[in-house]
Amino acid sequence: MSTAAATHYVSSDAIQRYTFHERVMHWLNALAYTYCLATGLAFYTPHLFWLAVMLGGAPTSRFWHPILGIGFFIAMIWMHVVWRSDMEITETDKRFLSNVEDYATNRDDRVPPQEKYNGGQKLYYWLMYYGTFLLLFSGLFLWFPEYISFSLAWVRHLMIVLHEVAALITIGGFIVHVYMSVFLVPGSTDAMIHGSVSRAWARTHHRLWYIRVTGGDPVGKE
């Protein structure tokens, strides 16, 4: 593990966390989501309408929002195919979640060791996964409201609220996700960009995974 990594930003002890394929997948998903988020927020509240203007004008935003929404959905399905097995909630995750307060207050020593993804990440994943369906389903009604007869106007009303509630929930998750990956857990963003993390990082945050991929945990043995 050696010379090739020399040109890398990550120390030579890096281990691969995300393949190139996974990273492309994540960022496409992120791009679509972010675009929908920005334009969606513009349509959502007049105070953020300027977002749509900055993104090429509101009519353009309205045009691309549902199309990128479909893109987001496809990316999400792709992600699901790739990550579904990694995302199954296990006993480990439940333990993590019961100790989430420790995790949130950075008392990481009290947090039980985690697999490649911890319970919180998995929850975020499922939140986004199901949120995507909700957004797509309600979004289709918003996309083509003219095909809903006036006698079924309540469907339109309901779908708008559903779309917004779903969006708000994903936004909540998204804020946490961005905060954690960019600020709270240094190295996370690097990982999603370059694909690898340091051994220490892996050992700290995802020890079970670390052990699995390194074949043991010489450091952790007490």
Binding site: P46, F49, A58
Partner: peptide, 10 residues
């Protein structure tokens, strides 16, 4: 227009 909208926000 939108630009002016900002001015009138307040």
């Amino acid at each position: 227009g939108t630009g002016a909208a900002m001015a009138s926000v307040l």
